[in-house]
């Protein structure tokens, strides 16, 4: 089956990012297709490469990046939510006249239409949040 996953919360603050990761891994292991993982609200914070959790903690952002590299996942961060929260790629940072970007490898920034399209194109849409 084809899935779109929606992640509404940031990493560490709430378990939903962890659960979404575990679910996505399990779905891939079962041979399902992940059409897209969409990050909205504080969920956009999953996509910053500047997180440095303590050495004995899990690396949530890195887990997404590695999963994307291994399975060719489409990890999409909502642009409107990202701009509010300071998640930037190089193009967007330049356009906004900002001095840095922080997007993690494997993620891309795009519009909310990508979420709606995910709902239309997928057999199932599963929401993780608070």
């Amino acid at each position: 089956m084809k899935y779109t996953i929606l992640v509404n919360e940031g990493p560490y603050q709430h378990q939903s990012a962890d659960t979404a990761l575990q679910f996505t891994r399990a779905a891939l292991e079962k041979g399902h297709e992940i059409f897209r993982v969409f990050f909205y609200h504080d969920g956009v914070n999953n996509g910053t490469r500047l997180t440095v959790p303590p050495a004995d903690d899990r690396l949530i952002q890195k887990a997404w990046t590695e999963l994307a590299e291994k399975h060719g996942l489409d990890l999409v961060i909502c642009i409107a939510a990202a701009q509010r929260r300071g998640i930037m790629d190089a193009d967007e940072a330049k356009r906004q006249g900002l001095d840095a970007n922080n997007i993690a490898p494997g993620f891309r920034i795009s519009g909310l239409g990508q979420l709606v399209e995910g709902g239309i194109q997928s057999d199932r849409l599963v929401v993780f949040g608070d």
């Binding site: 509404n8 909310l112 709902g119």
Partner: peptide, 19 residues
Amino acid sequence: TIYALESLEVVLISAAFEQ
């Protein structure tokens, strides 16, 4: 919380997809 506002933003976008 921002959920209501950002939910409304998705609702408006969904209209463009004629669902």
